[in-house]
Amino acid sequence: MQIINRMVIPFLLLAVWWAGAEIGWFNSYLLPHPAKVFDTAVSLTQKGTLFEHLAASLYRVLGGFSITFAVAFPLAVFLALHKKSYYFVEPVLEFIRHVPPIALIPILILWFGIGETSKLAVIFLAAFFPVFLNTSSAIISCDVKLLEVGKVFSFSGREQFFKIMLPQALPQIMVGMQLALGYSWRSLIGAELIAASSGIGYMIIEAEQLSRPDIILVGIFTIGLLGYFIDYLFLKATRFILHWTGRKEKLWQE
């Protein structure tokens, strides 16, 4: 029932689009008939073109995201635990944080060419700060009272980190990862629109040059649906990892 409720608005929008296309409200060049878009999606899927582009984009997103996490997470932990070091790197980080990754694409292409490295660099820049900032702030704001419990039990620094800080910081770290995944996806499409020879972004820009709005829409729907699906999977994984956050029912009587 919940799923049906959530699908009401998308179906209404589709119905309006369909009806508008049938009646002739929309210029078919600007907004093709949904049936045509569907046929194009089926055809692109059968030919394997859609999957080919999708695989290229997914590979970049997952690769870029993994590299970002591997760099941003330990760096954030290190700087959160060594606040004096953070003082020295803060100006550089703040500078980079305020430059949109898309604005760096021209220089990244100059440095790394139009191959995979420049796309991964764009994803890295887009996903770095959500992971970095959420991780560092979660570690810094770790409850001192809980750390004192570890201190009383003579926990080593390593034990304090793995037994108290990390589990406590995990919810915020997961939020950072979720945001980073979304940013990776968005920035990649931006990068593919500017310079690529494969990927969903490239498929869209190529369709624009071929005057094929139906393919453009297939690309847009693919991006939206896949983003939604990835987010859904991530939330499921988050709920599994942070299993205690869902256990709210009281087991006692007042």
């Binding site: 009272k145 809980l146 419990v149 003579s154 108290i164 589990p167 406590q168 205690w244």
Partner: peptide, 14 residues
């Protein structure tokens, strides 16, 4: 070896 019970339970929520 000293153990302490604080004013608040300070249990690990996870």
């Amino acid at each position: 070896r000293t153990g302490i019970v604080f004013q608040e339970p300070r249990l690990m929520p996870w």
